[in-house]
Structures are given as C-alpha cells and as structure tokens.
Design a protein around this nucleic acid. Sequence first.
DNA 1: AGCATTCGGAACCGATTGGTACAAAACACA
DNA 2: TGTGTTTTGTACCAATCGGTTCCGAATGCT
Lengths: 196, 196
Amino acid sequence: MARPRNFDIDTAVAKATDVFWAHGYEGANLPDLLNGMGLTRGSLYKAFTDKKTLFLQALAHYEAIAVDPAVKLLTNDDIAEGSHRITKVFDGVLGVVRSGDHRGCMLCTAAAGPAAVDDDISAAVHNALEKMHNAFEVALAHSSTHGGHDAAHRSEVAHFLVTQYVGLRIQTLSRAPIERLDASVRALKDVVGITH
Amino acid sequence: MARPRNFDIDTAVAKATDVFWAHGYEGANLPDLLNGMGLTRGSLYKAFTDKKTLFLQALAHYEAIAVDPAVKLLTNDDIAEGSHRITKVFDGVLGVVRSGDHRGCMLCTAAAGPAAVDDDISAAVHNALEKMHNAFEVALAHSSTHGGHDAAHRSEVAHFLVTQYVGLRIQTLSRAPIERLDASVRALKDVVGITH
DNA sequence: AGCATTCGGAACCGATTGGTACAAAACACA
DNA sequence: TGTGTTTTGTACCAATCGGTTCCGAATGCT
C-alpha cells in the first residue's frame, strides 16, 4: 500500500530522550536531535508533529525508564521496611552521580525550565512528581518510624521527600561536589529516622 | 573630558536582574533586556561587554538582594533560637509564593540551566549556595535541638537544608500547588525538630 | 568657543532557530 | 510490472539569536 517507516518509533523516542536529557529542552536543537535520532527533518516532522510533541513523548519515556522503577522500588513489598526502600532511592541517585552521570533528573530539569511557561510540560512534570509522592506515601506506610502516624502526616513527609529529591537532582545537574550530596542524604536519613 | 553615562549602572543591573529572574538566562533575549533596562544595544554592550557578563553581574545583584538577607537572618543573634531563624527562611519562601510570585530563586534556576554548561556561572551558583550552607550551620549551632551535636553533624544538616531550599524553589518555579510546598515545609519543621 | 571623547541609537551582520515544501525514492498491493 | 501512497531527504523559509559598526549628538575640559 505504502512505503513503511524504516525506523522504530520507540527507539527513536528513546534516542530523543537521551538528547533532551543531556541538553535540556531549549538546549537541544534540531540538528542535535536529528543526529542523535539518526533521521532527517522530514522524517522527524512526519512522525512527531513538532519539537514540543517529541519532548512530551520523551518525557513519557523518561518516566517509564526512570520514575517507574523508583515507584516500583518504593512500593515493593519484598522489602518489608519502607524506610529501606526510601534509602535505596536516594542512595541510587548518589550512585548515579558517583558513576559520573551529572545529567540529573530530566523531570526536575524540565520543572526548572519549560514547565515554568508551558502548561502541557508543567502538567506532565507535576503528574510524574505526584507519582513519586504517592510511592513515597506507600513506603512511609510500611515504615516502622512513620507507619504509626496518620495518613495526613505521611502525605506531608512524602511531599517533603519529593522536595528533597528535586533539590538533590538539581544540584547534581549543576555539578555540585558529591560530598555535599552525600552529606545531604546522610542528614536526610538521620533526620527522617531511617534505620539503616 | 567626555560625555558621561546618563544611566545609573547599578539600577541598570537591578533591572537586568528582574528580566533574567523572570525569564532565565537563555530565555531572556536582548530585546527583553534592552526594553527592561531602558537602554539600547550600543549602551549595553559598552557598559557590559556581553550577555553573560551582564548575567554574572545580575547574579551578584540577586545575591545581594535575596541571598544576603537570608544569610543575615540565619546569623542574626537577635533571634536566640537558631531553629526559629531557619523557620523564618522557609516561611519566607512560602510567603513569597503565596503572594503570587512564582519566579523561584534565580540561583536555583541558574543551577538547573546555564550552570550545567558554563563554569563561571556554575562557580557563582555554588559560591552562593555555600554562603547559604554556612549560614544554616550558624543557625544550627544556635539551635536547641542541634546545637549540642558536633560541627560535622551540623554541616551535614546544613547541606540537607540547602537541598530542601533548592527543591522548594524549583517547585515554586514550576508552579507546583502551594499545598504541596506547605506540606513539604511543615514536614521539614517536624522532621528537623524545629520548635515553633 | 572649540576640541577631544564618549555615549546613544539604529542599521546591519552572519549564524542559528524551529518549521515547511516538494520532488524523488521505496514500498505494498494488484 | 504498473499504480498509488507514504516516507525520506534536501532545499528552503522567515524569524530571531547575540553581537558589531558607525555616525550624529552630547558633554567636560581648556
């Protein structure tokens, strides 16, 4: 009937995610994207209507590969103690930084950039952060130190943990020394009363 | 000898700060700046060599009007209880948001944006955050709950507070609902053991 | 007043931005 | 193999980016 698309759309989005992740939304220009995705302008604009639409798909992809695993970890009953799950999340962030990855969290970067002016991007960011919040709530409910409190209290602490997560990620992005991030997380564990 | 400059350079920087604060570094283009500062290209490039230099001066100005007051508050011995000073800082942030100001913190925005690629901007950002950290340390030393601990512990908690501050500011920038920020700060106070 | 000097304003610059138009090529189906 | 449809690649687009140049105007000093 017609010529089939000779690239996989999902892998193209994955590659676009890499580019956006590395350079941010405004920072990633068309040549960067085309080169990174291995296709030409015509194909890109045919498959994805414009840059913003592509970015929203990339955000969704990022959510799938970065946020969802964290959510899964926080809600994983195999780890009985909820605070251990939380610890794992923050230690995971530190591990990523220690391995030399300073890209930070694409969601957080988007929150600081285009989310301030674009409603669609803002909605996507807040939706993802809400998922994180809910997952933190679940983990807190299974925490020996916080499980006893009422749900309202756990919700507050979950918001607080999201804030801490965002702050940590933004600082990794700006290449803050790892010692600061380490210290920050250590104090977090201490202060939240996480047993480790 | 020569024609004098007929605009005040400090007020020009102040106006440039407003523009950068509202639109970010890349987001603020020359027409925006020229319009906001009330001068023309020739004058601007004569007085400040280029956009980045102007931005660095704007960052310094921001530090003077936004960071220094916070530092002064955190190190103000008139408020004997250090945790009260910390409370005031975070409540101040919430107050600003509640008054409809969603510009967030210019430092934090810079941290998430140009600081990731430019060394000069990165240095300026980290220097300012370091000032915040030191001020938090001082406040913690005068805190009934943390004053007793050793300095190393207070340093960690100070890093943690900076992270919380950054996370909070970034979320205000992305126009997160005030309830989340409120909850976050409430949990912070609770968890840090701040008496209020 | 005259001169040296600097400022202010606008025209102009090449480079780059995201996005479009269109022709040629590749395929599925008959 | 012919036909119709879609993709692909390239040339092209206007708009905008930060930055420069240049000249008339304004000023302080002698």
